[in-house]
Nucleic acid binder design. Structure first.
Lengths: 151, 151
DNA sequence: CAAATACTTTACGTTAACGTAAACTTACTC
DNA sequence: GAGTAAGTTTACGTTAACGTAAAGTATTTG
């Protein structure tokens, strides 16, 4: 046995930390296509992979409809005609552009977070100074009072 | 005059390609704080900067509520007490983690897009071959038809 | 001064992506 | 065989982020 081939909805739910409601919703929207044993859903590894892609897509800001469109196109790719394939290439190119935008956004945000953190730490040490001035000339070590919980 | 100091809602709307409805909504949610001349909104450069941050935040998957919370915290930072500042540092740390996740997501997506594109191009050249077979026996060199644009 | 242009408020409508509740079926297990 | 755990369907509810329409004001322009 190379791999467990099927999964219950509960297994996927807990593995990816997503509600069963969501998983059923994704099926309803045509993103997952589990088979059935009786009325119980049985998910393949392909479904599992797709679920992972759905969630990553969400984190990247894609709607379910977009992701679904990608899945459908991808399924048609091996048998696709020239027009389909060219459409796929265009979409891929668009995704790339989207990702470049995101990388740029992230880079700028990172810089700003750096300066924000610096400003914060500065304000903190400023507070420490004032504390010292208010409680002057004391031979007990200060760092006992300076304990901070970093939660 | 160093810079134009104020902006109308229409100016911001066209500059950032966002509807006036959205801008008013952002004000309503406490993200922008334009002054008024009569009942007409007058936006400062600070508002303009914040609008840019709002939009970038959206592209990064932040809700307006999250962005608003950041703005509020940021405003309190210079006068903040220790607790406030530590909270800010925690949030900044969370944002960083979020961005690391995103960078990882993007990196994986980029690889998959690469292979998807390769698969597409392969399918395309496969189609070309079949076309040639239907219009056979030609002494022109093959590589003219095999040209690919690597964009 | 009339018409066009750029604003404004109020308020109901819409879409995506689920949450939540109720009522039901299977499958085990004590 | 009663309970409980995991699954199911149906269907109404909810939230965020605006869209859209109506009706009014203020200023500019031909």
């Amino acid at each position: 046995m190379i791999q467990k081939r099927t999964f219950s909805i509960g297994e996927l739910s807990s593995e990816f930390d997503v509600t069963t409601r969501s998983i059923r919703f994704y099926e309803d929207q045509g993103l997952l296509k589990p088979t059935r044993r009786g009325q119980t859903r049985i998910f393949s590894t392909k479904d599992k992979v797709r679920l992972k892609l759905i969630l990553r897509g969400k984190r990247m800001g894609f709607s379910l409809a977009e992701t679904r469109e990608l899945f459908d196109l991808w399924d048609e790719t091996p048998t696709g005609n020239e027009k389909q394939l060219l459409k796929m290439l265009t979409i891929l190119s668009n995704k790339r552009a989207h990702m470049e935008q995101q990388k740029s956004d992230i880079a700028m945000a990172e810089m700003e977070i750096d300066t924000a953190e610096a400003r914060c730490r500065e304000a903190l040490t400023e507070l420490q100074k004032k504390k010292k001035q208010q409680a002057p000339a004391n031979d007990e070590p200060e760092n006992i009072a300076k304990k901070t919980d970093n939660n």
